[in-house]
Computed example of a mutant assay.
Amino acid sequence: MATITRDSLMTLEAYSKIRKTARAQAIEHRKLRSVQLGEHITVQFEDEQTIRRQIQEMLHIEKIFDEDGIQGEIEAYAPLVPDGTNWKATMLIEYPDAHERKRELARLIGVEDRMFVEVEGHSRVYAIADEDLDRENDEKTSSVHFLRFEFPQPAREAVRAGASVKLGCDHTNYPSHVVIAPETLASLAGDLK
């Protein structure tokens, strides 16, 4: 697994030159690694490429060029890169209407802990959510959560061998599951060793 370090990042000038032309490829890669779960949840599986782009974008937008600032961005985002035994993802709960969003986020408290991946022939692997900080309170859950799915070795081997995989949620107010598309699964299988 590639590691993101200060020396492996592009300078602000170099990134600025390729930013627009690389955008389409970055969008396609993110799309490949995104799974729609029901009508309102999108799970974007991260990898070294998506996180490297995120760090470069933050450095570009914030005009960060000093060593401490760059290191701070690396430390903030690098934990989202899978390490060979897991998948890491950003979960987005999306309701365009503000009133509906407020109501549904109140109904979906705890949804992040009910997200699972089920590898064919293996037990469900439930997400370990929001390890950096708690993203819900007594009134509502957040519309963004960070998930880690930690796989036992036999499940990792099954994924790499081509087993079918479902992404799902068994929260009372959002029961849903979907079979991960083959092209997406092929990309995700590369995250496991």
Results as ranks from 00 to 15, higher is better:
T90V: 01
R114Q: 05
Q36M: 11
A26D: 10
R52Y: 11
L59G: 02
Y77V: 01
E120R: 02
K63C: 07
E120H: 08
I55G: 06
V43I: 14
R53C: 09
A106W: 06
I64L: 12
L37N: 05
N86H: 13
E94V: 04
I128H: 05
T90Q: 09
D97F: 07
Y126I: 01
Q36Y: 03
S142A: 13
T42L: 11
S34L: 04
F65I: 02
E28A: 15
S142W: 03
A89L: 04
E62R: 11
P96D: 11
K88W: 08
Q54I: 05
G162I: 02
I41P: 01
N86V: 01
A161N: 07
A22N: 05
I70M: 08
P82D: 04
L80Q: 14
E118I: 06
H60Y: 15
Y77A: 01
E136F: 08
L108E: 02
D134L: 13
G72K: 09
K63A: 11
L133Q: 12
T90C: 14
V117Q: 02
E112C: 02
G162Q: 01
R30Q: 09
E57M: 15
D132C: 07
R33V: 03
D97N: 06
E94D: 08
E150T: 08
D66I: 06
I109W: 11
L147Y: 00
T90A: 07
R114G: 05
P154V: 04
D138F: 13
D130E: 05
H29F: 04
F151R: 04
R53Q: 12
R23V: 08
V165Y: 00
V119D: 03
P154Q: 02
E94A: 09
L147P: 08
Q36W: 04
I55A: 07
A155P: 12
E73T: 14
D47P: 00
T21W: 04
L37Q: 06
E73R: 15
P96V: 10
F45Q: 00
N137A: 06
D138R: 03
Q36I: 15
V125D: 01
H60C: 08
Q44M: 07
L32V: 00
A22M: 15
S164R: 13
T42M: 12
A163P: 02
R107E: 08
L133Y: 15
K63F: 03
A89S: 09
R103L: 08
R103D: 15
I74A: 06
T50Q: 11
R103Q: 06
A98M: 14
Y95C: 03
